[in-house]
């Protein structure tokens, strides 16, 4: 069975220089999609990613991460759109750093691609009718 989860990884300063993600791919056959990264040598690193693979390998990968000293949290926040409040104005489009919003050319409606969202929350307060909601 395949699983796909969004997780937040906290790297202690001593392992930010190790190729942790590479090992996940090489040793456990997992695929990843980095949603957000803040890694500087010598400092605590943060990586938000979607990790996918077979359940068995996924569990092994998580075990490997834990043993290496990486602290793992599931991505507990999620940004969703309240369709009843969205007026499709487009104020969010240029605010989003990952271009999760786009215009449907024909109808000029604003599309929200949840997969591109990194849950930064910038759109939540920039949305004039407050249609973007941060879920915990």
């Amino acid at each position: 069975m395949n699983v796909s989860r969004r997780i937040v990884l906290h790297f202690p300063p001593n392992i930010t220089e190790q190729p942790v993600v590479y090992r996940l791919v090489k040793d456990f056959g997992l695929t990843f999609n980095i949603l957000k990264a803040s890694v500087s040598p010598g400092e605590e690193g943060l990586l938000v990613m979607e990790l996918s693979g077979e359940q068995k390998n996924y569990d092994k990968g998580i075990k490997y991460l834990t043993e290496t000293g990486v602290e793992i949290q599931s991505l507990s926040q999620d940004v969703v759109r309240d369709e009843s409040r969205c007026t499709h104005c487009g104020a969010c489009i240029t605010i989003c750093p990952t271009e999760a919003f786009s215009l449907e050319p024909k109808t000029r409606k604003v599309l929200f691609d949840h997969n591109k969202c990194v849950v930064c929350g910038l759109c939540v307060k920039a949305c004039p009718p407050r249609a973007m909601i941060l879920h915990f």
Binding site: T87, H88, G90, C92, I93, T107
Partner: peptide
């Protein structure tokens, strides 16, 4: 503006709207 990008002082700039065209329609 509605093409999504304009050129201003040589810079390619993304555009956004505060007025809703689908609702106006």
């Amino acid at each position: 503006l509605k093409s999504g990008r304009i050129k201003v002082q040589g810079k390619d700039v993304p555009t956004g709207s505060l007025s809703s065209y689908p609702k106006a329609m």
